[in-house]
């Protein structure tokens, strides 16, 4: 998800940079407003933690691994503003000091990895929590769904940027399919980790969870039973599949729309630099339909596989916990 230099053209990099600077500025102002001064060291240490967690890869499929992005976790724990600021700091430091993500792609990466994930995860988490019974398990389910959606949203933001000013001429349909497929899987990993992490925090220090600060949750002091875990996992699975089915086709008409917009609004330099305008237009008319179906199918298959893996992990760890 960390985009290198040269992947997105200059105009789009600058444009996204302006978006990122604006979003970060608003986040900073709002974070500072609710700021008790001990939040600064806290934010720094949390940023260090997210950096460290991002270094650990988890397997998605054989040969493909993802890592935690942390936007959803940060937003749920610290609130959307501080969450966005913290993950932005992580992304900026990674680019400046560790060449992880390009310097010119800072705007792209801050937008996709920090701002979009935090701003999508927060309302989804709050919304899902609102309609579920107020229990710890519900908060975990809400965290799972919001993390999953936030990762997909981040990948859609990338596809959008690529459609506006991507280099290399990969068909947007292909990019969308690949990004959605892989990020549906990464999203499941992100969801499981976010939910588990939140569950731990709720059990030990429920007062630290900003996203549930005004919600009285029951069952925070108990370990969920086997049946509850199964229900939780199955609910999460159903929501994830539903999202892939409904969100993917909704999003896929965007690229050709954006291509048109790009050509009309003088982002034509992008089209000149990588001559994909003509072929792409043809490709999309013929190809988007099947791409969409492919996206959905791969998304569903991927989601199911990842959930099977997740269930396996739960089963194994439970068995070990029992025998230990």
């Amino acid at each position: 998800m960390h985009v290198p230099d040269g992947f997105i053209n200059a105009a789009t990099s600058v444009g996204t940079g302006v978006v990122a600077a604006g979003g970060l500025g608003v986040s900073l102002r709002n974070a500072a407003r609710g700021l008790r001064d001990f939040h600064i060291p806290l934010a720094g240490v949390t940023a260090a933690l997210i950096f460290a967690l991002q270094m650990l890869n988890f397997p998605v499929l054989p040969g493909v691994s993802g890592h935690l992005m942390g936007g959803a976790l940060a937003a749920i724990l610290l609130g959307p503003w501080m969450g966005a600021v913290v993950v932005s700091v992580v992304v900026i430091v990674q680019a400046l000091f560790f060449a992880d993500g390009g310097i010119s792609a800072l705007g792209v990466n801050v937008t996709n990895i920090a701002l979009v994930t935090a701003f999508v995860a927060w309302p989804v988490f709050r919304g899902v929590l609102k309609i579920l019974p107020k229990t710890r398990l519900s908060a975990m389910a809400a965290a799972m769904v919001s993390a999953f959606v936030s990762v997909l949203a981040g990948s859609f933001a990338f596809v959008l940027e690529y459609a506006l000013g991507g280099v290399g001429g990969a068909p947007i349909g292909t990019v969308l399919g690949a990004m959605t497929g892989i990020h549906a899987l990464i999203g499941v990993g992100e969801g499981l980790i976010t939910a588990t992490a939140l569950g731990t925090v709720l059990a030990v220090r429920p007062d630290l969870v900003r996203g549930a600060a005004d919600v009285e949750l029951s069952g925070t002091d108990t370990v969920p039973t086997g049946r509850a875990v199964t229900t939780f996992v199955l609910t999460g699975l159903a929501v994830a599949v539903a999202l892939v089915v409904f969100v993917a086709p909704f999003a896929s008409p965007h690229p050709d729309g954006l291509e048109t917009v790009a050509e009309q609004t003088g982002f034509a330099s992008a089209a000149q630099e990588h001559p994909i305008g003509g072929p792409l237009a043809d490709y999309q008319v013929a190809g988007v339909e099947s791409e969409t179906v492919g996206t959905i199918v791969s998304g569903i298959i991927g989601t199911v596989i990842a959930f099977a893996i997740g269930l396996g992990i739960v089963a194994v760890s439970r068995r070990r916990a029992r025998s230990a």
Partner: peptide, 11 residues
């Protein structure tokens, strides 16, 4: 605020 958080993060 940004540089302060980054400072703590790197520390």
């Amino acid at each position: 605020l940004l540089t302060a958080i980054a400072g703590f993060m790197i520390r």
